[in-house]
C-alpha cells in the first residue's frame, strides 16, 4: 500500500464523513497515513441530508446493567439513553455488536433488563461476553441467552455487507499475573474460519478485552492476542473493535485499525492516570460526555472502515 493510496483514502473518507448525518453531535475520527485524528465536533447544523452510503453498523459496549455505585447510580438509565441515541440516527444501522459486560454481576434480572432496553433498538445484536457476564455460579445465563450457534466458550463468525465478522471470547480461563486469553482451541478455530477466505475480504474482529496491549499494568491487553492478529495480517482491511477500558482509544498498524468504544455505564481513567482502573467518578454534568456508542461505516473499495464515536451528550 503506497503513500499515495493513503492520501486518496483520506480524501474519500472526508467526503464520506461530510455526508454523514447525526441528530446529536459526534466526534469524527479519520485515519490518514496511520495517524488517527479527530475532525472535531460537528453539530446538526453542519450535517448534510444525504444518507450515509455503504453499510453502517453500531458498536455498544460495557453496559454494566446492575451497576449503581457513585460513578453512575443508574447504568440502566444511561443504556436507555444510548439506545434512544441509536434510534434517532438518520441512517438506520444494519445491526449492532455488543462487546461485552452487558451486566455487572451476571444476575438473571440484569440480563433481562439489558435485553428489555437493547431490544428497543429493534436491531439484530451480536454479542461477545465480558468477564462480568460469566459470574453466575453455573455460568449459564449468558450462554442460554446469547451462546446459541456459537463454538467453544461463545465464539462465532458471520458475514454482512461483504465484511467477515468474527466474535472472539478472551475473558475465560485467565491465568494469574496474565492478561485476556483466547486459548489454543479458539485460535485453531480462527485459523479454520479464515481458511480459503479471499485476502480482499474486509475483516472485523471483535472481543471484550483489547486484543492489542493497551496497558498491561491494568490487565488491558490479551496474552495471545498477537497470535490472532498474525492470522489476519495478510488481509487488506482489518478492523479490531473492543470494549473493557471504557474510553475511546485508537491506533493503526499497517492494514489493521484498532479501536475501543466508550461504555454506556461509567468512565474509567486513562492508563496510569489513577491508582486503579476502577470506575471514575466525574461531575454529573460531565458524565454523559464520557459515555456513548460507536458507529462504523464500511464502503466497498475503501480500505479502512470509518469509525465515529458518539457520546451521549456534548
Amino acid at each position: 500500500m503506497s503513500g499515495h493510496d493513503h492520501g486518496e483514502n483520506g480524501v474519500n473518507r472526508r467526503k464520506v464523513l461530510e455526508c454523514m448525518t447525526w441528530a446529536g453531535t459526534g466526534v469524527l475520527w479519520t485515519v490518514t497515513g496511520g495517524v488517527p485524528r479527530s475532525l472535531g465536533i460537528i453539530d446538526s447544523a453542519q450535517a448534510a441530508t444525504a444518507v450515509t452510503p455503504g453499510m453502517t453498523f453500531l458498536q455498544i459496549s460495557d453496559s454494566h446493567v446492575g451497576f449503581d455505585k457513585p460513578a453512575n447510580p443508574n447504568a440502566l438509565g444511561t443504556l436507555e439513553e444510548a439506545v434512544g441515541k441509536i434510534n434517532a440516527m438518520p441512517t438506520k444501522p444494519a445491526f449492532m455488536i455488543h462487546t461485552g459486560d452487558i451486566t455487572h454481576l451476571s444476575k438473571a434480572a440484569e440480563f433481562d433488563n439489558a435485553d428489555r432496553i437493547i431490544s428497543q433498538s429493534k436491531l439484530d445484536v451480536h454479542y461477545v461476553p465480558g468477564e462480568h457476564d460469566f459470574l453466575d455460579e453455573e455460568v449459564k445465563f449468558y450462554r442460554e441467552r446469547y451462546g446459541r450457534g456459537s463454538k467453544g466458550q461463545g465464539w462465532y463468525s458471520f458475514d454482512a455487507g461483504g465484511v467477515h465478522f468474527i466474535g472472539l471470547v478472551n475473558v475465560v480461563d485467565l491465568k494469574a499475573g496474565g492478561l485476556g486469553n483466547l486459548g489454543a482451541e479458539q485460535l485453531a478455530w480462527l485459523e479454520d474460519d479464515l481458511r480459503g477466505k479471499s485476502k480482499s475480504t474486509p475483516i472485523v474482529l471483535f472481543a471484550h478485552i483489547p486484543l492489542w496491549t493497551v496497558y498491561p499494568e491494568w490487565g488491558w491487553g490479551t496474552e495471545d492476542g498477537g497470535r490472532a492478529l498474525e492470522q489476519v495480517k495478510g488481509f487488506g482491511s482489518v478492523t479490531v473493535l473492543n470494549g473493557h477500558i471504557h474510553q475511546v482509544m485508537q491506533k493503526v498498524e499497517g492494514n489493521v485499525t484498532f479501536h475501543t468504544a466508550r461504555s454506556t455505564a461509567f468512565p474509567q481513567p486513562a492508563p496510569g492516570a489513577a491508582s486503579s482502573p476502577g470506575p471514575m467518578k466525574v461531575e454529573d454534568a460531565k458524565l454523559r460526555s464520557m459515555l456513548g456508542v460507536a458507529s462504523i461505516n464500511f464502503k466497498q473499495n475503501e480500505q479502512r472502515l470509518a469509525i465515529i464515536d458518539t457520546p451521549l451528550q456534548g
Binding site: 468477564e131 462480568h132 459470574l135 485467565l174 491465568k175 494469574a176 499475573g177 496474565g178 492478561l179 498491561p216 499494568e217 491494568w218 490487565g219
Partner: peptide, 11 residues
C-alpha cells in the same frame, strides 16, 4: 499463590 480470576494482574 492466589489471584483475581476477573483481573488476573491482581496477585
Amino acid at each position: 499463590k492466589y489471584f483475581c480470576s476477573l483481573h488476573p494482574h491482581m496477585t
